[in-house]
Nucleic acid binder design. Structure first.
Ligand SMILES: NC(=O)c1ccc[n+]([C@@H]2O[C@H](COP(=O)([O-])OP(=O)(O)OC[C@H]3O[C@@H](n4cnc5c(N)ncnc54)[C@H](O)[C@@H]3O)[C@@H](O)[C@H]2O)c1
Ligand SMILES: NC(=O)c1ccc[n+]([C@@H]2O[C@H](COP(=O)([O-])OP(=O)(O)OC[C@H]3O[C@@H](n4cnc5c(N)ncnc54)[C@H](O)[C@@H]3O)[C@@H](O)[C@H]2O)c1
Lengths: 211, 211
DNA sequence: GTATTTTTGTGAAAAAAATCACATATATAT
DNA sequence: ATATATATGTGATTTTTTTCACAAAAATAC
């Protein structure tokens, strides 16, 4: 059983590795990765050790091998399909963001209740909410993003889950009522900012929470 | 020295308390707060104990008193001024978001290098980047949000810090080079999604990382 | 007015995560 | 070939965070 923090560190290593690879690096030592990801070299090695990844006593790790292993662990070898509900300000920002596709994540469709939104954004179809269930089943989608107003979030969530979705990235600052088999990651930007402001005001050092 | 997680829990309690208050509640027991915030009742009491907040052995905590204490600890008794740099898709979404003001956070101004963006968004002035330093000093701003393209983030960060900013909420998925006295909270949405997908794919239960 | 129930509060214990200490392998230099 | 420097790898240790166990206070019931 692994923790979220651990997986996020693996993702970070992977990101850095791709950049190193594109720069022509063949090998990398734990120290390089540590510098680039804000963890200690020891933590890097421990993580790899735990992940069953092994390097050379001198000369560190082979970049290609590392990427391959991490991709395997992180399930990055096929494109990950997601849907999005709520084609508003933040939803549209996400739909136009190129960063997801670069990581093999594709927003296959978006849904809204406002007919004015139907059509396309970028190359992503925007469909009526009623078509969600069918779309999710047909395309075997397992992951959804919620960017609807707070009041609508629970109801959209319920629809998603009953349609077969297993994991939700939720931008509404509410606690979704759910069951333990569903994975929910909440993005609460107000809280991120409140938190930041707290540490700024008190002058206390935020001990480098990852992410 | 407190951790980020701890402060975030306090923020969550506070949110729930405001809602309870608006519903007319005068008192609350640790169990209620626990249910609403996805932590255990014990954790709630421990947190309060640590924060020097004390309740009644029966009848729990006074809502008003709790809110007051939490506001005090979290520095919520005055409006928190922030600036934003990068009036693009995500920057604009944030500028139009009402959730910040509801929590006493005000985006005082935004900055960009594209003259087409100058003017206003909602009621927030959008100014040339060159005016940042002056604005920050004059208005004694301590907190900034970075929503510029990845390539520009470090440079904008440097400008912010050299202008007197002490804390940054960074949306660019890069590691900002900084010094230990500066607080940085990174929001990495790709990683949130990658992480979610990992737990969906493996069927492992993500042990409820807060936030 | 005494017993019972409810709920806080905290020192102690357990669990989880990070770090240390050091053994081990391998490349490079001499 | 031997010594030296560089890095990994892991059991042990420390630190941090959460949970347990139970005492104490206050309301309610009998
Ligand atoms: N905008 C931000 O910067 C920001 C920041 C943090 C959190 N959020 C949260 O993100 C969510 C969306 O914010 P926004 O600013 O993009 O809002 P928005 O009003 O711009 O967009 C909401 C969209 O959801 C659609 N919608 C409403 N009810 C729906 C339903 N039942 N089913 C499907 N679609 C529905 C609306 O038609 C609209 O297109 C909110 O919960 C908000 O709290 C936004
Ligand atoms: N859009 C998203 O959903 C999303 C999601 C995750 C992360 N991000 C990150 O947020 C950042 C912004 O993304 P976006 O989609 O809003 O981009 P965008 O291109 O829509 O907007 C960027 C804005 O920054 C301005 N800008 C560029 N260089 C600048 C500089 N040196 N100083 C000041 N302003 C400058 C541009 O004029 C533009 O207005 C990126 O780092 C991106 O990786 C965005």
């Amino acid at each position: 059983m692994v923790s979220k923090k651990y997986i996020i560190r693996l993702c970070r290593y992977r990101n850095v590795l791709y950049r190193l690879k594109s720069m022509g690096f063949m090998r990398v030592v734990s120290n390089n990765l540590a510098d680039a990801t804000d963890v200690t070299a020891l933590q890097v090695r421990k993580d790899f050790s735990l992940a069953g990844i092994t390097g050379n006593k001198k000369g560190g790790y082979r970049v290609d091998e590392l990427i391959e292993k991490l991709n395997q662990i992180l399930g990055k070898n096929e494109i990950q399909k997601v849907i999005l509900v709520g084609v508003g300000k933040i939803g549209i920002a996400l739909m136009y963001y190129k960063g997801f596709e670069e990581e093999g994540i594709k927003i296959e469709a978006a849904f809204d209740i406002d007919p004015q939104k139907y059509g396309k954004q970028k190359d992503i179809p925007v469909l009526p909410l009623e078509r969600l269930r069918d779309f999710v089943k047909t395309n075997n989608i397992k992951t959804g993003i919620i960017t609807v107003p707070d009041m609508a979030a629970q109801q959209v969530f319920n629809l998603m889950i009953s349609s077969g979705i297993k994991g939700v990235l939720n931008f509404a600052p509410i606690k979704l009522r759910s069951t333990p088999d569903i994975v929910i990651n909440n993005v609460n930007l107000v809280m991120e900012l409140e938190n930041l402001i707290y540490f700024v005001n008190t002058g206390e050092r935020n001990k480098g929470e990852i992410l």
